[in-house]
Design a binder for these strands. Structure first.
Length: 474
DNA sequence: TACATCGGACATTCAAGTGC
DNA sequence: CACTTGAATGTCCGATGTAA
């Protein structure tokens, strides 16, 4: 995955993601020659300005690393001139915009592996992978953290191209900072809610300090970078401080960009995520020939996965607020509930519940013969159409006017890409069988409950009555 | 503006089911 | 018996309401 020595890797895994590296640790990236030749105007001064701010957040110096888990950064296209790169300007924010969004637990002391690879995914074989890949592209050095808290994950298009820099949310600072307990890091408290990164194709990589041990712990996806695409959209200050590495788009180019962007957005809304892309945040095609594929790849627009503690304290549980693994947790400390901050008790799962037959994947060895339709199952898959992957119903059901295969997605879920291993029933779980057709479903009944569609395996209670969120669509 | 409340989206767990 | 599946269960986002 990366080239760091194991010891160094371990160290970085134990470091908080937002650690600010001492400046002497900065190293030069091996940037493309075109970058190396580039001379910035006055980037360092801006960087210094941020480092001196009261709220810290000097993440403008936080660079994409060749070592860390900044998978969202690793997704950066390597070609800054590629128009598609600007899609990364789709500003994605951490799923939590609240003050707890950063996940205090990820910054809490004593939590090794805090953040991405820690905690709840420990028993899983794959989910964390999506966030664990190590970026290697020199272009990553273009990455900067922007402390602006303005961006929302689902920004309107009008906000995609320009994100005002250097804005901060003063009221949220410090509340979840653990920097006091981590003196080895330069103390730059941060507001979790106001943390946003930006991707500046206009800033020269070699002028930025690199984070040699970037720990992708808490929220590398909390912020998909936003891109000041057009020069006229940038604040004057920034125009002075950054020389354009990427030439301003012409009107025609901009129009094309908007068109392509619209295509990407609509694709994201309607296209199931490609199941084979197990690391949606880590692998971004860089070839120009893949431009359209990039644009239509919803993975680039994905909302970051929410992480949660294994066991919230009773106070946070009651308040339905984010907890951390510290006891007392950060929230209880904040509200003076330290004495009552104890782990909540969990129910013991009921046993002996009969479950219906499961959908099974077709082994890869049998995929080759799938087109031959040698089995009824496979021919059903063909009949049901390539978009489902799952066989919707028995053949006898295909003629039914109420069949789910009349709908774009007939089966229980479509996974947007993460959690590829779990068969998760999470809300994003639009599964990806439509791309690999690996699943062979059992016979299904299809029913509607209200506005939701349920595809229920025989022998399984109707999920509409089960109180479960699985197997239904919004 | 801060905080409380809470519906429901999202994440995780783990027993049942499956197949070698 | 390892692996998969998916319902049960838990977490907590974010909208809304209320009080100061």
């Amino acid at each position: 995955m990366n080239n760091i020595p194991p010891q160094q890797q371990q160290q970085q895994d134990q470091q908080p993601f937002f650690k600010q590296e001492p400046q002497q640790e900065s190293i030069q990236l091996s940037a493309p020659q075109s970058y190396q030749n580039f001379q910035p105007l006055s980037y360092p001064s801006q960087q210094q300005q941020h480092q001196q701010s009261n709220h810290g957040q000097s993440y403008n110096s936080l660079q994409g690393s060749s070592t860390g888990n900044l998978s969202s950064f690793s997704a950066m296209p390597s070609n800054p001139y590629n128009l598609n790169n600007h899609l990364m300007g789709l500003s994605m924010q951490n799923g939590s915009s609240s003050s707890s969004g950063l996940g205090a637990s990820s910054l809490a002391p004593g939590h090794n592996n805090s953040g991405l690879m820690s905690g709840a995914n420990s028993g899983s074989t794959t989910p964390s992978m999506a966030y664990a890949s190590a970026p290697s592209s020199p272009i990553l050095s273009n990455l900067q953290y922007n402390p602006s808290g303005n961006s929302q994950y689902a920004q309107s298009n009008s906000n995609l191209y320009y994100q005002q820099q250097n804005q901060q949310h003063p009221q949220h600072s410090n509340q979840y900072s653990y920097h006091n307990q981590q003196p080895q890091h330069q103390s730059q408290s941060m507001s979790s809610s106001s943390l946003t990164s930006s991707f500046y194709p206009t800033s020269p990589p070699h002028q930025h300090q690199q984070q040699p041990q970037q720990n992708g712990s808490s929220t590398p996806f909390s912020s998909m970078p936003s891109t000041p695409l057009r020069q006229q959209h940038q604040p004057p200050q920034q125009q002075q401080q950054y020389a354009p590495l990427v030439p301003p788009l012409s009107d025609a180019q901009y129009a094309q960009y908007r068109q392509l962007l619209g295509s990407a957005l609509s694709s994201a809304a309607s296209t199931p995520y490609h199941s084979n892309q197990s690391t949606p945040y880590s692998s971004m095609p860089t070839s120009p020939t893949l431009e359209h594929q990039q644009l239509s790849d919803p993975s680039m627009l994905q909302k970051p996965k929410r992480r949660q503690v294994k066991n919230a304290c009773v106070n946070c549980q009651k308040a339905c607020k984010k907890c951390d693994e510290g006891r007392p947790c950060t929230r209880c400390i904040k509200y003076g509930l330290t004495e009552t901050c104890v782990d909540s008790t969990r129910k013991v799962r009921k046993k002996g519940i009969k479950r219906g037959p499961y959908k099974r994947k077709i082994p890869p060895s049998q995929l080759g013969s799938a087109s031959a339709s040698t089995t009824p199952v496979l021919s059903h898959a063909v009949l049901a159409g390539p978009s489902t992957g799952y066989m919707s119903e028995p053949v006898t059901a295909l003629n039914s006017p109420t069949q789910s295969h009349m709908l774009p997605f007939t089966s229980s879920s479509m996974n947007f890409g993460y959690n590829a291993n779990s068969g998760s029933n999470s809300g994003y779980s639009f599964q990806t069988q439509s791309m690999d057709n690996n699943y062979v479903p059992p016979p299904y009944t299809t029913s509607y409950s209200g506005s939701s569609l349920y595809s229920t395996p025989y022998g399984v209670n109707d999920p509409a009555n089960a109180g479960s969120s699985s197997n239904h669509f919004p």
